[in-house]
Design a protein around this nucleic acid. Sequence first.
DNA 1: CTGGTATCTCCCCCAGGGGGAGAGTCCAGA
DNA 2: TCTGGACTCTCCCCCTGGGGGAGATACCAG
Lengths: 269, 269
Amino acid sequence: MLAIGEFSRLTHLSIRTLRRYHEGGLLEPELVDASSGYRYYSADQIPTAQVIHRLRELDVPLADVRRILGASDPDQRAALVAEHLVRLEAELARTRVAVSSLRRLLAPDPPPLQVELRAEPEVTVAAVEDEVDADDVGTWFAGAMAELDAALGPPTDAGPPGGLYDNGLFEHGHGRLLLYRPSAEPPRRGRVRPVRLPAVELAVTTHHGEHDGADVTYGQLGSWVVANALTVAGPVRERYLVGPRDTDDSAAWRTEIGWPVFRVGTDLP
Amino acid sequence: MLAIGEFSRLTHLSIRTLRRYHEGGLLEPELVDASSGYRYYSADQIPTAQVIHRLRELDVPLADVRRILGASDPDQRAALVAEHLVRLEAELARTRVAVSSLRRLLAPDPPPLQVELRAEPEVTVAAVEDEVDADDVGTWFAGAMAELDAALGPPTDAGPPGGLYDNGLFEHGHGRLLLYRPSAEPPRRGRVRPVRLPAVELAVTTHHGEHDGADVTYGQLGSWVVANALTVAGPVRERYLVGPRDTDDSAAWRTEIGWPVFRVGTDLP
DNA sequence: CTGGTATCTCCCCCAGGGGGAGAGTCCAGA
DNA sequence: TCTGGACTCTCCCCCTGGGGGAGATACCAG
């Protein structure tokens, strides 16, 4: 039986942290003296403590650590861990994008932006729509796109997929998100259903590369809109001209960003 | 002039976050209405907001973001950013170590540990000693080793360097740390001075690979000590048989870990 | 038995964000 | 000019995963 200080020395987990892990049900001491409250650990618990230590170094949330430790089957445990390694890899990819887009931001001469004003007519499409948290957009997007493809089959010449992004997504971190594919006769299947997109006047530009870097282009487009004295209204639109479905080379990806505007002197009476 | 909601849509920073950045002096609105408190931003502030966004994605602390934005000289700014990219890289290395050591921990059959009992005689060495936080050990270690090498010259055959780790380092996250190199006539120079290391009985094993993974070996050694009914006392000792000074191949590194013990039936009267 | 050290619980603090209440402000349409 | 809805304000609390420190007990060796 090891007192907490001794166990701390053995595992390199601080006493405070061990107590917290006890409270949290992550690592229950083998024995807790009922009268004194002293925690006593056994040497058998050292490996467990070290697994926790490692998982925490990988920023696995305590709740997930608990789940991993609770998995009785070693295979299942390995699967749970692998899941987090995937998450780590995704995070690394995000980091890479952030670094390169930071370089772009800090570069002295930003290339001028090509912006086009376009009147988008009303159109009926096959769409999936949901209330989504900003953090979940990536996951949701993948699922929705898969469902659209399942309902409509392989890409046709009806046009690339697109999305409508509620302003609340940016302002409050959650809002409505609509993903669509053009279709002459939109089916109803699963979450897919026909939706009538209203006509809208858009200021349009094209973002090159990873979607994670798109907010820089958003800013440039927004600046243009502000500078050219047009008024903003309604959800932002995107169209995925070239994306991960088309090529693995993310440098070749093209996302059209459409910012709804009132064209001065045209829409005003 | 853009109200906060509009600016939020343009930069993809949430309204809450923009307010926080204002409070924190990171991104001051161009104008704050004195009577209403409304924040108004200019379109020129969009690039700044996006730089902040990117830096935060890289987990740069707000204080450092402030410093980077405050740097007037672009070169200086680039240097500050580069500093953080170095930190990111170091973190990535730590992650890799954690992953591989996690694999080792979850492997079904841990190889048996070679433990040796050794009576270490009293010895006088050239040492640097300090009170250090656990987080700063790496930095402190590098500095202290450099200072030792400066005082003693290139490696001799007097033996590899070593360290003494106070228990408080593991239990509370800070404690005394002593780094030494054996020397017949220890000099006094800078922080380097002669120190008499007391004689001690050690349970010794050798850790292979990155030092970041050593705590697993610590646990195994500790288990052995507990199981073999010896009592623990005093600071842990390490000796750096092969380290980054010797080879870049971290798989070849060897760290001897010595756990102070009383040998039953020998030290007892 | 006594004193020093270990350990207990409890409360407050940190970063960097989010939720929500309640009040005041802006602006377009009637 | 009024009015209602949308926008924004401040303020307080909560989250995660830790750390600092106080004050009270427990353990254990001399």
